[in-house]
Amino acid sequence: MSTQESYVTEDGRTIGPTVMEMKNITLRFGGVKAITDISFDIREGEIRAIIGPNGAGKSSMLNVISGFYVPQEGEVWYKGKKRPPMKPYQVAEQGIARTFQNIALFEGMTVLDNVMTGRIRQMNAGLLSQAIWKGKAEKEEIANREAVEKIIDFLEIQAIRKTPVGRLPYGLKKRVELARALAAEPSILLLDEPMAGMNVEEKEDMSRFILDMNDEFGTTIALIEHDMGVVMDLSDRVVVMDYGKKIGDGTPDEVRSNQAVIDAYLGVAHD
């Protein structure tokens, strides 16, 4: 099927045309090739998984999308346009939000403030208006607080909204980080191992949130995950990486029966 046409999945969700396309990305750190000539696309409304053994280059790929790493070769296309070199905050301004493999919350701030920070794109009152807390600043603060409260309800973290993030247990931190990314109302949401280090229950909760997010808000999601069961359940399409190369790309079923993928997973020790 052409990547420009929409289609409807078995469970009734509409997958739109390509929103982001990585073309022949190569990323080197000195002599180390973290990513070698990888191309893949992300379509509107889909859940796109990136899997692969440790050190395969998955996080590096998200960092390229975020603008944090600049690839030596290749192009990033976003919404039909080739993306010029950009700083990470400019990428965020374009509507790409993310979470990190090692939680990157603002530890000294409350949960509420952390999530509110996610709304940078929606809040642009001038310094003067903010200084006197009148006019645009005040209106904006209230309107965005309402939006953030919806996300806080959705992720079931109402009880901790005034707690400093530093005091939260790991599982809740992961959830707060997701809330912050979701608060941005992103066009694409990048999740780097959202379930790493969680127990089965927490994983189930997180899976439910990801599915609901995609379903209710139509958020396009690209996620890295090691738990194969989760990946097969959640994702529409999967990219498989190994040693910086792409060794598979397709629906979960296609990927599962791909010999190169099976070899990579049997041949390489991973957790």
């Binding site: 975020s66 603008g67 944090f68 700083k87 990470p88 905050y89 990428v91 965020a92 301004e93 939000a97 993310r98 990190f100 990157a104 919350l105 603002f106 530890e107 000294g108 701030m109 403030d113 509110m116 920070t117 996610g118 709304r119 940078i120 794109r121 809040m123 009152a125 310094l127 903010q130 200084a131 006197i132 807390w133 600043a137 904006e140 603060e141 912050r180 990314a181 941005a184």
Partner: peptide, 28 residues
């Protein structure tokens, strides 16, 4: 007023983790 609003949050985000702040959209 400044510290309880968006400006203050951006400052604190830079203080707590500047790289993450930039990736979520704070212009450092």
């Amino acid at each position: 007023n400044l510290t309880r609003g968006m400006t203050g949050r951006k400052w604190m985000a830079i203080r707590d983790m500047d790289i993450a702040a930039e990736i979520i959209g704070v212009n450092p």
